[in-house]
Design a protein around this nucleic acid. Structure first.
Length: 156
DNA sequence: GCCAACGTTGGC
DNA sequence: GCCAACGTTGGC
């Protein structure tokens, strides 16, 4: 089992939206970045655990935990001319983009803000992409030690 | 709203 | 294959 962090804008789809579908799965569509796609397609497996991160909000940070419910399959929204993330270069015979399904696990007892994570950028989270400058990856791997450290910040 | 950082595109 | 232009991300 692996650990991941996935970013979402709460205005579009936040942890509360995911929690509103208890036990159900939600497609994580719209990923249009090759690095993120490759990780989803090649490395994500059902049961993998996900830090759910809120971006483009105040304050940004980790707000909950989700899990991978289904391994990668073609992102059909790329085929749809009316979809927001339509990509004419992707078609069913040769899909360019993939998505996974995720499932709500729980809210964190408190949000762990980006500022708090950055306070450990020279320590336990030294190699964590999120706290490095200019990071724009919407999906990133989390090492087991990083996962434990971050959840340790959550407190009782 | 600003803007730094970064990925993608396309001319050459 | 280089690289300038452009678009997007996302913190602030």
């Amino acid at each position: 089992m692996r650990y991941w962090l996935m970013k979402s804008e709460p205005d579009a789809f936040g942890i509360d939206d995911l929690a509103a579908r208890p036990g159900q799965t939600e497609p994580w569509d719209g990923v249009r970045n090759y690095q993120a796609r490759n990780m989803m397609r090649d490395d994500m497996q059902p049961g993998d655990q996900i830090l759910f991160y809120h971006s483009n909000c105040n304050p940004p940070g980790i707000v909950g935990i989700a899990e991978v419910a289904r391994a990668a399959y073609p992102d059909h929204t790329a085929f749809d001319p009316d979809a927001k993330y339509h990509d004419p270069k992707s078609d069913p015979a040769n899909p360019r983009w993939y998505m996974v399904d995720v499932r709500y696990v729980r809210h964190l007892r408190r949000q762990i803000t980006l500022a708090e994570l950055k306070a450990h950028a020279d320590g336990a989270l030294q190699d964590f992409p999120l706290v490095r400058r200019g990071n724009r990856l919407s999906i990133m791997p989390v090492e087991p030690a990083q996962w434990d450290f971050i959840l340790g910040l959550e407190g009782p």
